[in-house]
Design a protein around this nucleic acid. Structure first.
Lengths: 196, 196
DNA sequence: CATTGACTACCTAGTGATAGGTAGGTATAT
DNA sequence: ATATACCTACCTATCACTAGGTAGTCAATG
């Protein structure tokens, strides 16, 4: 698979803000997929927004399935990284839970965009299997992380609490998006956080 | 708009189980859309499953947007009807809530299919506006119904409880579908019902 | 009672647009 | 010299959608 090389040997080039094409492609694809789903995104549209030809996209991601997999993998990795970075200075499970919920809120508030895995999860049976597997992995990792937190909070069934919290947050993003009312998400977030 | 005429003047015809083409089209489209989303469904595929030509579908639903709107309207109407029929003999808000949750469970267990409005809601910004409006109407009607129930249950903020319950059930369907584990939905349902 | 006209529900045939994807060439930089 | 990152040009398949035709059903009419 083609992976972005972030210009490792930068001797003394001029542009510091040069973003690799692969990253740009993923950025555009992510925004579009989180708006309208997997099948609503085309190589042509992405290429047009980048100012290159659609054939060139196949150099970076030979098949659309490759793009889909890379997209979810990056999304999940970013989430994990943000979660790790934000919980370095936390002391209590309560604070960790707050960090988690806040990451979800940030995703929604960014450009009123629903979680990538909520969108792809909704059409999972129609996706290429490798893409669905990445979505499932994202959910599983989230569930595991939340289970640990709820264990620390002394919940009787921490895994069940984790699955409920995940479902509620993902569902609330969708309802908030349709209703154009983030108050739904806020109410959901409040309930998750009240689960001490 | 073309509406199905269910052979009103049925003198003494032979076949009692004759289903109108429009109904068949909607049935096939609903199953496919609940599996893979709006854009993954094509007139050709529906027509092939019916054994007719795709051009004939346009006689019943001139534009795909018309099909989408009719689909969500029928889904919402069926839901309302089932809700009404099932709550005729209920006495308490607790029982009404149980009926509501059970309708969602039935939808998921039917053929492991997620709620149509969860799928379409996830890709709402990419849908034709009239379709999105119907999805929003479904959510609003559900919220209103649940608000009444939670009012009867004496909740401090019944509307907030309603939005949370709706979000949780829709989200749990998606997570259950991706994980191939209806236990997630069951846990969510249990929590909603425990909200007395 | 047979004819007519309207209507229903399909058909054939085709449109232009767009989809994902491929082959092979080229400029640049290391 | 090799790899990168694009290009032109093209492919086949599929998309939603349309025009115009046809067989069957129906009620009303002369």
């Amino acid at each position: 698979m083609n992976v972005c090389k972030p210009k490792s040997t930068s001797t003394q080039k001029r542009e510091p803000t040069q973003m690799s094409s692969a990253t740009k492609i993923l950025d555009i694809a992510e925004t579009r997929m989180r708006r309208a789903g997997y099948n609503a995104v085309s190589y042509r549209d992405i290429a047009a927004e980048m100012g290159i030809k659609s054939a060139s996209l196949h150099y970076h991601f030979p098949k659309k399935e490759d793009l889909g997999v890379a997209l979810v993998k990056r999304y999940a990795a970013n989430f994990s990284r943000n979660l790790f970075n934000s919980t370095i200075m936390t002391d209590t499970p309560e604070e960790e839970l707050a960090v988690f919920v806040n990451l979800y809120r940030t995703a929604l508030e960014d450009h009123q965009l629903v979680c990538l895995c909520a969108v792809l999860g909704a059409e999972a049976p129609g996706l290429p299997e490798p893409v669905t597997n990445e979505v499932r992995a994202f959910f599983e990792e989230n569930t595991l992380w939340l289970t640990n937190v709820f264990t620390g909070l002394g919940k009787a069934n921490p895994e069940k609490s984790a699955k409920i919290a995940l479902s509620l947050l993902e569902g609330a993003m969708i309802v908030s998006s349709v209703n154009n009312d983030n108050g739904v998400f806020d109410a959901a977030a409040e309930l998750v956080l009240a689960n001490t």
